[in-house]
Design a protein around this nucleic acid. Structure first.
Lengths: 231, 231
DNA sequence: CGGTATCCCCCGCGATACTG
DNA sequence: CAGTATCGCGGGGGATACCG
């Protein structure tokens, strides 16, 4: 991005934060994504070339750092400067939820976006111990995105794009718009279940505790000043 | 700007705030600039076409509103949504001051940028009553920008690009880099005066009270985590 | 004063393919 | 897994002139 030619700290900051995709990349890092491919799953429409470019830029600006993680894999993490940016990004997100009209178009209702966020926010302590496999079905989606699996095991939680082969413990059936509205707090999970917009199939205990370990977006509690439209 | 295709409130907010020049335009509005030309003086390198376009966009997004002011002049102001954006913008500015390297190139040391900010932050109550004319001289600037005048009168404060004709009460002689560093708090005004980087010529009383009514940037008090370079 | 109209350039970005 | 390489285009925005 071309410089503003101003010494003003806001101008300098905007040259970095104002670049396309950068706030969303930072969001992924702030949610704990460390690996290139993990970051990319949060911004799937960003080309790898551009993501690499942004990561280099953020590193040069002292906002993130590259590390060698386990198995000498490349990992990215926030520097102290980057960490102090988190409240600003969060403030922007809260403002967006408060004040921007929320209409949900088809492309914005990509269930993978929600599933990616959702699977790393599960409250593992409230889930049953041992391996748990949950299959999410999205009735409005064509075959390639029709089903997603969350596998919770001792190693951690994984989101699978294709059938992992394990026996499914809980079947969740919904559609991409419902899961999106629920995730962002525009419909309560309770209401979605009551209305049948989300249905559960599996052991009674798992069904009953479902709302306790399926955590919603951190923004779910932020009220909207404009009512959501286009449900 | 092309949509991110995400429903995430951060993505939606970034589509607006992330557009080129938009944060700086908002900054002007937050500092109280209401008229088109007043806004433009804070972002002089932005073309009028683009400014008009951004103002329209911000209005459509519900962030600013157009009003008819005195003499049916067009005025812009923040809506409640816009007002709630102020802390976010301010947070970004504070972060920039804290963490971004501050090197001052020639184009960034435009004294007009500082004078425009500075003239609307004068503490009028601490200035002598009645008309006061101050001429700022920038020793490093070629003729068209060599001098600027601030005229404080009953009607308010005005920044003049050419000699307004009144007798000058106080002559301030400095250079564009010094005034910029001082404005942003990287050199104390006291030190700049002591070192002769700023010299005053005028009545003793006006000289003595100068540091009390020449207020600095709101960011002046924010410490830098990286030391400023290229003084 | 408060903007439009117009033109054109350039480069940011998207898409796709490929590699150590 | 973690990125490069390459190409082509679209349109954002810079510059300048002009208008009500």
């Amino acid at each position: 991005m071309k410089s503003y030619g101003q010494f003003c700290p806001l101008a300098l900051a905007s040259e970095i934060i104002g670049e396309r995709w950068t706030p969303l990349v930072l969001r992924e890092l702030m949610f704990g994504a460390a690996r290139f491919n993990a970051i990319q799953r949060g911004v799937p429409r960003m080309s790898p070339t551009l993501l690499a470019q942004r990561l280099r830029m953020l590193q040069a600006a002292g906002i993130i750092e590259r590390r060698r993680g386990e198995h000498s894999a490349t990992e990215y993490g926030l520097t102290p400067a980057g960490a102090e940016l988190a409240p600003v990004i969060e403030g922007l997100a809260v403002w967006g939820k408060s004040w921007l009209p929320a209409s949900l178009s088809a492309t914005e209702a990509d269930p993978d976006l929600i599933m990616w966020d959702l699977h790393r926010r599960l409250d593992l302590d409230r889930m049953p111990p041992g391996r748990t496999v949950i299959r999410f079905g999205f009735s409005d989606q064509p075959p390639p995105k029709r089903y997603r699996w969350i596998v919770r095991a001792a190693e951690g939680v994984q989101l699978c794009i294709s059938d992992p082969g394990f026996e499914v413990d809980l079947f969740v059936e919904t559609d991409s718009r419902t899961i999106t509205w629920v995730w962002y707090g525009d419909i309560s999970l309770k209401k979605a279940l009551a209305e049948g917009a989300i249905t559960l199939d599996g052991p009674r205990r798992l069904r009953a505790t479902f709302p306790s370990w399926l955590l919603l977006s951190p923004l779910a509690a932020v009220p909207r000043n404009l009512p959501p439209t286009a449900r």
